[in-house]
C-alpha cells in the first residue's frame, strides 16, 4: 500500500500564480494510477499543484482521509477511480461514491464548498481524460482561491 507523493516539476508553465494552492489527487492503483502512468508515457502534462496519492482502491478512502486533507490545508481533493463495473475489487468505486455523497454536505456546512471535492471515473486507458480532468479541476480551485482552512494549522 504505497502512497507515494509526487509533484511533477514542470517547466514552461507559470507556477508562481498558484504556487500556494495544493490539490491532492487520491487515485486508485488499478485504473486511474495506470492512466497516470499512461499519461506519463505519452508525455501529457498535468498542473504542477496536483499531487498524486496512490490507493489500492477508492473504496479504501476513509472519510477521515478527506477531512484530513482539508484540515491540513489542501485547497482541493480529487478522487479518481475506475468506471462502475471496472473496479478491481468489484464495488470499491461505488463505496467511494456514496461516501463522498455523504461527506459533501458536512464539508459544505463547515465552509468547504462542494466544488473543492471532485470524483471522476478514469479508466486505465484514459490518460488523456486524467489530464483533462485534473486540469479542469485545478482551474476550478484556482478560481475559488485558497481554502478557508488553509494555514489554520488545525488537526
Amino acid at each position: 500500500m504505497n502512497t507515494g507523493i509526487s509533484r511533477p516539476e514542470e517547466a514552461g508553465t507559470d507556477n508562481s500564480r498558484h504556487k500556494e494552492l495544493d490539490v491532492l489527487a487520491l487515485v486508485c492503483n488499478w485504473c486511474t494510477y495506470t492512466a497516470a502512468d499512461l499519461a506519463g508515457v505519452t508525455r501529457l502534462h498535468y498542473p504542477a499543484q496536483v499531487r498524486l496519492i496512490r490507493f489500492m482502491c477508492t473504496g479504501m478512502i476513509d472519510m477521515r482521509y478527506i477531512l484530513s486533507c482539508f484540515l491540513d490545508g489542501a485547497d482541493g481533493v480529487f478522487i479518481g477511480g475506475c468506471h462502475p463495473g471496472d473496479c478491481h475489487y468489484l464495488t470499491g468505486n461505488l463505496k467511494a461514491r456514496v461516501r463522498i455523497k455523504g461527506i459533501r454536505p458536512v464539508l459544505e456546512s463547515v465552509g468547504i464548498p462542494p466544488q473543492r471535492l471532485r470524483l471522476e471515473w478514469i479508466g486505465a486507458s484514459e490518460g488523456k481524460k486524467l489530464q483533462e480532468d485534473l486540469t479542469s479541476f485545478a482551474r476550478v480551485i484556482e478560481q475559488l482561491g485558497p481554502s478557508d482552512y488553509k494555514g489554520m494549522n488545525l488537526v
Binding site: 500500500m1 489500492m56 479504501m60 482521509y65
Partner: peptide, 30 residues
C-alpha cells in the same frame, strides 16, 4: 481476502485494521 481495504474504511473506529505489516505503509494521518 484481496486486501482492498473496504472493511477498514467502513469501520468507524478501526477495529477493522490493516495487518501490522501493512499498517506502516498506509499514509499516516495525524
Amino acid at each position: 481476502c484481496r486486501g482492498c481495504g473496504a472493511c477498514v474504511a467502513v469501520c468507524p473506529n478501526k477495529a477493522s485494521a490493516w495487518s501490522e505489516q501493512l499498517e506502516e505503509n498506509v499514509h499516516e494521518l495525524n
